[in-house]
């Protein structure tokens, strides 16, 4: 190449695409090499400045991570959502009712032996009364009535004779 690099060739060099012909020219031409070096340094300064601007303390990155995490993670579930509140109220009511219905001191139940003894004694009394009586227990009212009538007639005999006459 017997000429200096044109604009396109110089751009290609800066972009990193160097053909063998251009490379040999750069090796031989101080002017083109100097021009390339100037621009390369200038462009490298952009990289260095981007590095400088993005240098941050660890606290910065940590805070950024936390910010992102806090916005990514889903909100915590509300364990006391209304539907669960209803369930809680129902449970409390059930427990309360169960507590109120809880049986207190159980009533005293007489000893079975004592009950049997009382029953036997009463039964014996009834049997004895039945045996001693002249009539069966179902006829006791009739017996009482007869006794009363007998007593009345013995106290008023005239009344009885008059009634006898009337009958005749």
């Amino acid at each position: 190449m017997d000429r200096h690099l044109n604009e396109l060739e110089a751009n290609e060099v800066l972009a990193g695409n160097v053909s063998p012909e251009v490379a040999s020219h750069l090796a031989a031409c101080a002017l083109c090499r100097s021009s390339r070096d100037e621009m390369e340094h200038l462009l490298r300064a952009l990289t260095a400045e981007a590095d400088h601007l993005s240098e941050k303390p660890d606290a910065f990155w940590l805070a950024q991570q936390r910010q992102i995490s806090s916005r990514i993670l889903p909100p915590r579930r509300r364990y006391f959502a209304p539907r669960y509140a209803w369930a809680a109220v129902a449970a409390i009511l059930i427990v309360g009712i169960a507590f109120l219905l809880k049986p207190g001191t159980p009533p005293k139940v007489p000893a079975p032996v004592a009950i049997a003894a009382e029953n036997d004694q009463q039964l014996m009394i009834d049997v004895e009364q039945t045996l001693n009586s002249d009539v069966a227990p179902p006829l006791e009212p009739a017996q009482v009535l007869v006794q009363a009538m007998t007593q009345t007639s013995s106290n008023h005999p005239a009344t009885v004779s008059k009634e006898t006459r009337n009958e005749n």
């Binding site: 070096d37 100037e38 340094h41 200038l42 300064a45 260095a48 400045e49 590095d51 400088h52 601007l53």
Partner: peptide
């Protein structure tokens, strides 16, 4: 803001 070292480096190349 630019790091001065890099700028000085660039400055060295300017004819």
């Amino acid at each position: 803001k630019s790091p001065e070292e890099e700028l000085d480096d660039v400055a060295q190349t300017i004819p």
